[in-house]
Amino acid sequence: MQFESVEDVRIRLEEADYICSKLAATVVFLAGATNKPILVEGPAGVGKTELAKAVSRCLGRDMIRLQCYEGLDEAKALYEWEYAKQLLYTQMVKDKIYDVIEKSTSLTEAVDIIAAQEDAFFSERFIQPRPLLSAIMSKEPVVLLVDEVDKSDPEFEAFLLEILSDFQVTIPELGTMKAVAIPFVFLTSNNYRDMSDALKRRCIHLYIDYPERELEARIVRLKQPGIDETLVYQLVDAIREIRNLDLKKKPCISETLDWAQSLMVLQVGELSQDIIRETLSVITKYRSDTEKVIKYMEDMSKKAGIQ
C-alpha cells in the first residue's frame, strides 16, 4: 500500500494518531514515491521516532527498529552466526564423513566427493538476522527505523551506506543479499554530531521543529480528548513561552502532553500561577530550569501588576 498524494499522507497519518505539518507530509510522500530513506532531524521530543511509527501503522507494515549507540557493531545490527549450531554441525560432519567417502577408492575421489557435498556451515541456515538484515530479508515490506544514528560510530555509518543506496547487504561468506521488498527507511538524529556527506547524499532531509501553536493545540486535543478548550490554549501558550527561555532542556511535545494529562487528573480547568508552580516538575527536568521558570513567572506578574 502506497501513499497517493501529499494530502493522502496527511489524512492517513492523522488517522494513525499523528498530526503533522505539510512539510513532514510532503517529505514522507516523496520518500515513499521514490523509495528514498528519510533523515529526520530536530530537537529531542518533537516526534521524530513517532513519525516512523505512525507511518508503519498507516501503511500496515511491521516496524523494525534499530537503536544506535556508541559501540554498535555489525554483529548486533546486521547478522551473527549461530555458533553453537555451527559447532554441532562440525561434529556431525565428523561422524558422517566416513559414510560419505566409504565407496571412494582413491584419495582424489574422496576429496571430490567431499567437495560435492552441500556446505551448510556458512549458509542461511545458521545465520541469525539482526534488525538491518531482517528488514532486507522480510518478504513483506517493512518500516525500518534507525534511531539516533548520530550516536553511532563513523564505521557503522559506513555500513549503512550500502543498505541506504542499494537496499542490499553484503555478507562476506554468503555474498550479497538484495532486498526482497524495499523497506521504508527512517533515520533520526539529534545532531549530536554531523553526519557524513555520503550518508546525507543518500537521504531526503526533514527537519522537524517544535510545532506551531495551532498544530500543538490539535495534538493535545487528539491525545487528551475531553480537555477543556480554554485550557488547551493556555497550556500551549505557556509551553511556548517556557520554550523561549534559556533552559537546559526545553519542554517538548511529550512534556506538553504529560502536563495536559496531569492537569486533567488534577481536574484543573484553568491555569494559574500556583498550579503552574505545583505541576512544573512535569515539564522541567532540571532544578535550575524550574528556578528559572518560576523567576520568569514572578517577573512577568510583577510587570503585569505595574501596568
Partner: peptide, 25 residues
C-alpha cells in the same frame, strides 16, 4: 521527485528542493 508533486503548489516545490539541497539544519 518533481514528477510526483503538484507542479503548481509552490510550498510543495520548496519543501522538495529544501529536502534535497539543504541536508542539515
Amino acid at each position: 521527485q518533481l514528477q510526483h508533486v503538484n507542479p503548481v503548489d509552490e510550498e510543495e516545490f520548496k519543501i522538495l528542493m529544501r529536502a534535497n539541497f539543504a541536508k542539515s539544519r
